[in-house]
Amino acid sequence: MSDWFPLWLSVRVSVVATLFASVIGVTFAYVLAKWRSRWSSVVEAVVTLPIVLPPTVLGFYLLTLLGSRSPVGGAWERLTGSPLVFTQGAAIVAATVSALPFVVRAARAAIVNVDSRVEESARVMGMPEWRVARVVTLPLAARGIGAGVALGFARALGDFGATVMVAGNIPGRTQTLALAIFAESQAGRDGRAATLAGVAAAVAFAALLAADLLARRRDREGR
């Protein structure tokens, strides 16, 4: 088994996508948690959609949004000189959007659960809200956020439908682990498909296990 490109591509795409999803998702979750308006439910439902939509539907919308003829895709092309769709960049976008709702939902719940007394204490002690968020709220919500990030990573790693729609299935360029397994299986190379499937399962399992161990260690050290 010589060609590990799909594995490295998948790891790279999911790591970068998880980073994006974490930053965007935690910011979003914080605003949703603190924003008392009925519109926050609407916004949350929209952010959650990628979980329940068939990934191909998500991919279809992303393709529409990022294609060369769309304003976003067009702007990207003018800026970088090449189209976004059917590239690794598109795979990262697809994985980010897939991972995002897991981060947002877990982080929002964790932030809402932080004792508001504790946050208010910090405010009264002289801290503006952004500093309270950084030194009190987010550290106290870290466990829940971490769980969401781990789920998001696993989801990004496993994405098939959205990736195949916007990034294609180009061996050696955009063929991630999930896509490669499909391709190998279709081509009758069951042995290689089985190996790649085993690797995918192992990586996802390791990520979830690591997240849980980190959370446990955190609990032991403090709290």
Binding site: D115, R117, V118, E120, S121, A122, R123, V124, M125, G126, M127, P128, V136, P139, L140, G222, R223
Partner: peptide, 21 residues
């Protein structure tokens, strides 16, 4: 004035300590 600029000390009923510190 926002709470952080009022210069008051507040001890809520349940103490409100930072559990992670």
């Amino acid at each position: 004035l926002p709470p952080e600029r009022r210069g008051v000390g507040w001890v809520p009923q349940d103490a409100g300590l930072f559990p992670h510190l």
